[in-house]
Amino acid sequence: MSGARLDRMIWLALPAVAYLAVVYALPLLWLLGRSVTGPDGFTIAQFTAFFADPFSWRVMGNTLRIAFWVTLLSLVIGYPVAIAMARARGLMQVMLLVAMILPLSIGVVVKAFAWQIVLRRDGVISQGLVAIGIWAEPQRLLFTEAGLIVGATNVFLPFMILPIYSVVKLIDPRLTEAGATLGASPFYRFRKILLPLALPGIVSGSAFVFSMAVSMFVIPSLLIGDRFQTLATLTGRSYLLMRNEALGSTTAVILLVIAVSIVVLSTWLSKRVGRSL
């Protein structure tokens, strides 16, 4: 009975499966194939060449470093926001949710251009830091790593907050109260109750942000420019400017492997951590 039902239900997924096969799976297979094909058929020469070049390692370093800082900054800023949202009630909670989700409707290009203005030598940040005496004179944040990290964090922050919020919301507030009546200080309660219970949200939020930060293209293009290459911008350049499909497919595959590893690793991590804590 339920088997027959399931069989019929499967047809409902057909349009989506067909769509994904055409626009996603096939190009992906082509990409993978292209990365291991040379003039004489199958080869891994493109990978060996890529890994032999110190420039490639600098690009990978750039990619991972930026993604790491963006993830960390998103976590540090996002965690308290998620807690506040989960604990807020009524109108306040709605307002916080709207304040976080509304910016998602603004395109990344628009946001990146806005950050260009903010990060300029005569932008708000520079002038503000001069005004309060931290900087002696105006400086340009645009086209620096710091500027890129700040701008990217802004764009990806909701993807850190939402998973943490959805997990924290389900934590019974009585648990921390019970901890308190058992003699646990606020910090001990945070460490032994709130943090372990919020960890699945933290892990998935971090995985979201990290994988998006690793593969971002528009934001680094607009906020740091060509002098600074990441795997994603290099992939884009290879295809669009250099017409080097071999290099482009190679970097794309490496990027893909990194992103998939993060997803797998974080799934494994949240399961393991959930068990051991």
Binding site: A178, T181, G183, A184, G274
Partner: peptide
């Protein structure tokens, strides 16, 4: 005094056991 310095134990209606322990 804050609750963790009171030596007052509580058994909650929902028990509030720590689900991860």
């Amino acid at each position: 005094k804050p609750p963790h310095h009171r030596d007052v134990g509580v058994v909650f209606q929902s028990y509030a056991l720590f689900p991860h322990l």
